[in-house]
Amino acid sequence: MRELRIHGRGGQGSVTAAELIAVAAFEGGIFAQAFPAFGVERRGAPVQAFVRFDDKKIRKRSQVYEPDYIIVQDSTLIKDVNVFMGVKQGGIVIVNTEKKPDYKVPDGVKLITIDATSIALKAIGLPITNTSLMGAFAAATGEIQFSALEKALNNRFPKELAAKNIEAAKVAFNIVKEAA
């Protein structure tokens, strides 16, 4: 079983990201489970959402404490929340930032930074970074196919909005693929 923890702020679409990643993973033929850490649905408050991936039925219901993957939607969280807590050796951390990191991820963990905010502003016209980061996640981990992500976005959003979000995801996907 592989586990993903998404850190964001209320309003950034972390829960939606978790749901759509699970939908895309299921589309790819594996079992997936997505759920939020509940109760802090205030705009701007730190939030978490989780996804599990496995080849067999997932029974575990506790929150994710030792993730294989972490997505940080807002790098200003890093000073307030221990976003890297429990990450596994060989894990992958994706941080949305335009800056060079002034923090360290644990040894043996791969850090990918991407300016998802700029990508989102350009493609969608809003600083909603979740879809760009989903594209980056697909490229970095291979847990979901880009085509499955595209389908999930098309099913979730009206046509025009879906197209913009797919564009944002595609740009981020290509950046991470090329850097790999």
């Binding site: 978790a18 699970a22 939908v23």
Partner: peptide
């Protein structure tokens, strides 16, 4: 939440 809000 544990079931009501979980995608599976």
């Amino acid at each position: 939440f544990i079931l009501s809000h979980t995608y599976e």
